[in-house]
Amino acid sequence: MMLSLPVKLIGTAALVALLACVPMVADGYRLSLAISLLNYTVLATAWALFSGPTRYVSLATVAFFGIGVYTVAVLGEVLAWPLVLLIALGLGMFVALIVGLATLRLSGVYFVIFTFGLAELVRQLVTWFEVNITRTLGRYVFLDVTTDQIYWQLLGLTVLVFVAGILIRRSRLGLALRVIGDDETVARHIGINTTAAKVALFVLSASFMTLCGAIMAPRWSYIDPAIAFNPVTSFQVLIMALLGGVHRLYGPLLGVVPLTLLFEFLLANFPNHFSILIGIAFMLIVYAIPQGIAGLLEKLTKRKGAAS
């Protein structure tokens, strides 16, 4: 049966309210774990917002995340927090716009390589600037942002990214992007401004990643380019989103939750064999569930529906 819209809204609101209570009951470690889950949920969902429908595989996640982190490192102590977030957002969107305009005509493997290079480029630029202009590398961030507040901000951002996802899917933009994903030449021929659509979505996706970085930054008290632009983040987000499935809005979430918990389990129990085990896990995932968990679940529910 279909639930009516008000029921769905009330259900969602209740769910968010429930999650908002987590800091009151969870201890330091569980709250940390919850922060990690939300962090990757935002990043992977934002990643899939763009890469899901367009099928452009981006490794630039950490470029934007890092821009957010660094904005806080530089401005965190001199400006009010909301202002810092706004500036981070502006910077992230600006970089995404430039990059989007310059590169979204690339496709396939060229785009992947470019985005990977972009993260490195931003990191080298920041390093160059810090080494030659400010002559400090490694900044100290001492802000009065508590872990609870970080959690709530991330939760808010998670809600926003899902709302944005739902709205896009229902809009003309979402339809245009699905056509582009299926066949870009056809899309262009039927009059879709493919570049504008792709750039718009790329900027939107990047702005969530940037905000996510800005929100996370006060957790670490010390930030240098290696910490802010750690390429592992990009790969981890990509893997989580692919495991979950990118053709559904909730897909990445289905990858984030089990993988974050798996990382956690392996790190806690096999600290010396982590890399090997995680490699094996990835291979199993790719071979066993190429469609992602969302695809798997849909197949299962469909089969059950047909049987009854």
């Binding site: 750690n230 592992v232 790190l267």
Partner: peptide, 14 residues
């Protein structure tokens, strides 16, 4: 990784 380090120490404590 900074975030892993924070979480691991929290795990050790709590």
């Amino acid at each position: 990784n900074s975030e892993e380090a924070v979480r691991a120490v929290e795990r050790l404590i709590t």
